[in-house]
Nucleic acid binder design. Structure first.
Lengths: 206, 206
DNA sequence: CACTAAAGCGGAGGCGCCTCCGTTTATTAC
DNA sequence: GTAATAAACGGAGGCGCCTCCGCTTTAGTG
């Protein structure tokens, strides 16, 4: 499943895809995405676009030029979130013992799911059009999890009789809870609980 | 499949369900529903609620008191539409030859589908909550069609080798076309075509 | 009838969405 | 450096959403 560019713009300088933006435009666009990510996390998917523009220090017109609809903006934020999550797997693995890396990554996964769920309820329509959005990101995300679990099993910091799918399955409780306000905290506790279970009976006892 | 009252208010005086409205309130409510039906048909599901209130000669506050969300209003309009459609079967049968009654009813069915489709795209969310909305109306509607088809077959104004499901199946083209502007006209022609087919080889040739 | 409480009314006001276009700024050519 | 031009900016303005609350009307009661 290749990661082809979505129908909706992507600014990654990876390949000089679509004419590079002017310097100021690129700067503004980046700021907008950053602020939007914060706002969506804080206030939910219905955060005011005008406030996002305001906080990013640009006019509302600028926001609309870059992201003609709310959905466009949300999609970009979501993709960024997913990318960050995948990248985090490598980074955490580099600077923590592998069980700790796994735990921290899963905590971050909770935030990611929050984004995903918010997006899901809002974007049913866009999703029918742009169906690769979820499918191709979720593949990469579970790949990242696999990597972490395998490393931790390999060096004995978690028990050896589980694999990534087991962990994902155990995490499924995260998906189910409705959008209650305590959802995030409960999910965090769930991750801790799961980690205790994983560490129990590990070769390298703590 | 009983027609129990939806989670969302219904004003039918059938049984004195929820305290009868004050005369003026009932009047305003009726006007609102009527105007809304016209506006939704004319301008689509996103018609301005303020304009609906204006045309109905009431304040926007009144509209919101009766229908706290756009979806509430849409649902009531839709139910009314469905009821009207079912009732029309009986009326048309009473004053036209049965083949003509069938034809006219099918033309009206086109309008009904238009409402239904508009609603469907807008109300995915509400539908997950209030799932009886579609299922219980569609049963009654197809019952109405069956009645008309059987009558027309019985008195020989349409051919005898078809039944209501055949007709419904033949009408399915109506469902498919996207929301193009010509959709309604094309659907009307489809109904005419179908009628010609049904009359062809009828016992009582024209 | 007159009175009163409850029900209903309606629109001002605050906010968000989105478009349009005059002004500003980066880039390119000389 | 300067000029020309295309790209980008940004905010005013128009419209729609929805809430809130002071005013009006109705339906009872005597």
């Amino acid at each position: 499943m290749a990661t082809e560019p979505s129908a909706i713009a992507e600014q990654k300088a990876d390949a000089a895809e679509t004419k590079p933006l002017r310097a100021d435009a690129q700067r503004n666009r980046d700021r907008l995405v950053e602020v939007a990510a914060a706002m969506f996390a804080e206030r939910g998917i219905d955060a005011s676009l005008e406030e996002i523009a305001r906080r990013a220090g640009v006019g509302i017109g600028t926001l609309y030029r870059h992201f003609p609809t709310r959905e466009h903006l949300v999609e970009v934020v979501y993709r960024r979130e997913a990318e960050g999550l995948c990248a985090a797997a490598g980074e955490l693995a580099g600077k923590h013992p592998s069980d700790v890396a796994l735990e921290q990554w899963m905590q971050r996964f909770v935030d990611y799911i929050a984004t995903k769920r918010g997006l899901a309820t809002s974007l049913r329509i866009l999703l029918t059009t742009n169906s690769t959005l979820f499918s191709d990101t979720s593949g990469r995300v579970s790949q990242a999890l696999r990597q972490l679990v395998e490393a931790a099993v390999a060096d004995g910091t978690i028990r050896g009789d589980v694999d990534a799918s087991d962990v994902l399955h155990a995490l499924s409780g995260i998906y189910s809870a409705p959008d209650t306000p305590e959802w995030r905290d409960r999910s965090r506790r769930l991750v801790k609980l799961l980690m205790d279970g994983l560490r129990f009976g590990a070769v390298k006892a703590r």
